[in-house]
């Protein structure tokens, strides 16, 4: 398959590959996709009290497009607000990497991963607020 230079560059030099402590209160983890479908993305966001994404890490099982989409998305959200991250649309990722039509689902998965990570972070925050401090 003919891929864009940008996609290949992200595949060969993925940004922010790795893991954050999934048990930390300020880390939201999104795990989306399914092994049976051939792609699984794990996206983690470390968010400070001002709602700014201080760090982002990913791990992806999937094709080159899936790896590049997740790498790109970590780059897009790092240093940005939760609101900005929530506004990211898959079409932005697909355009940036010039994904071929059969690979659009990779960008959808990346969008889903951000939303799942933010949802996990919010859930943790709500649980922490509900727990009376000692």
């Amino acid at each position: 398959m003919a891929y864009s230079d940008k996609l290949i560059e992200h595949y060969e030099n993925p940004r922010n590959m790795g893991s954050l402590d999934k048990n930390a209160d300020d880390v939201g983890t999104g795990l989306v996709g399914a092994p049976a479908c051939g792609d699984v993305m794990k996206l983690q966001l470390k968010i400070n009290d001002d709602g700014i994404i201080e760090d982002a890490k990913f791990k992806t099982f999937g094709c080159g497009s899936a790896i590049a989409s997740s790498s790109l998305v970590t780059e897009m959200v790092k240093g940005k607000s939760i609101d900005f991250a929530e506004g990211i649309k898959n079409t932005m990722i697909a355009e940036e990497l010039a994904l071929p039509p059969v690979k659009i689902h990779c960008s959808v998965l990346a969008e889903d991963a951000i939303k799942a990570a933010i949802a996990d972070y919010r859930k943790k925050q709500a649980e922490r607020a509900a727990t009376p401090s000692e």
Partner: peptide
């Protein structure tokens, strides 16, 4: 494999079949 969340889970001792995956 270093990049694979599945490999990481397996290294942690998780059985992938026990996870509820959302097929897409």
């Amino acid at each position: 494999r270093q990049m694979s969340p599945l490999y990481e889970l397996v290294q942690e001792g998780v059985d992938l079949k026990t996870i509820q995956w959302a097929a897409h």
